[in-house]
Design a protein around this nucleic acid. Structure first.
Lengths: 146, 146
DNA sequence: ACTTGACCTGGAGCGCGCTCCAGGTCCCAT
DNA sequence: ATGGGACCTGGAGCGCGCTCCAGGTCAAGT
């Protein structure tokens, strides 16, 4: 029979796939972000498809700065079974709202920085290259009209 | 003569204005994000308008995760005088690009989380409230059709 | 004279999220 | 049998950005 899909992944494969180190992977497991992962007879970890799936979400939530502690809580809900789905939704929604607010703040800051840049560019265009090269000065190869 | 504008601010005022602690303010100074601030005869710090101005930018850049070390470099450029404005512009622009990329990634993650939420909601609507309230159960006041 | 409150100093400590390490096991290829 | 590579463990260490602390000074109020 043709394997329905590779159903076990090695730590190395997972690490590469999610761009995490083996250490981080083990750390996540210890921290309760993943269940106690299966083992090969050798003792090496074997990740299943649903570990991969959860890791996907974990990665996503970590990337958006959900703290480990909160992620662990979420992972516990997942382990408790489908009846916790409403709670999970609440967690995700609340995270999403925080994230929205965060993105909006970033956008505002970004704009403010843009204004500062514009201000500087204004200063430069008013007195373009003032007192530049005090003589045969340094060898600093300044770009023309940067 | 009418004071042109309050030209000194106490640590407390600054801390409140920027929502920073006195400790953080001092830390920033030690770290070179601010010049060595003026003192009252008592030894207490007295912040000038241009400290405030710089702090404004510092706050903005810290809020967008510019590391302290980079901020110190920027602050040094500011101290070196107007001839460093082109360099400052480069620093800000490069930060802005990183920030744009960051925002974009956040947006993507946000969307992914949204999809997960939708998936969960889908599951819920297929089997709506299975085995909910095993009888006269807990008093959890679950919102109807959340 | 005494208290209160704002601030000072240098230095230690903390929380987070990893990251590194020593020493070991297992398995496969030469 | 030997070597190499992937992985294991428990625990220590790290980098960042603060945060806290003890012990002190100063200025104003009562």
């Amino acid at each position: 029979m043709l394997s329905p899909m590779k159903d076990y992944f090695t730590p190395g494969e997972i690490a590469e796939r999610f761009d995490l180190t083996l250490d981080t992977l083990r750390y996540y497991e210890k921290a309760g972000l993943l269940r106690r992962v299966d083992r090969a007879p050798s003792g090496h970890r074997r990740y299943r498809a649903d570990d991969v799936e959860l890791l996907h979400l974990v990665r996503c939530l970590r990337d958006t700065d959900m703290p480990i502690s909160r992620l662990r809580e979420f992972a516990e809900l997942v382990r408790e079974g489908d009846h916790t789905i409403p709670e999970r939704v609440e967690v995700l929604q609340s995270h999403q709202h925080r994230l929205n607010a965060h993105i909006e703040r970033m956008r505002e800051r970004q704009e403010a920085i843009g204004h500062k840049i514009d201000y500087y560019l204004g200063v430069l265009s008013e007195r373009p290259e003032p007192a530049r090269r005090p003589e045969g000065s340094m060898d600093t190869p300044v770009k023309e009209t940067g």
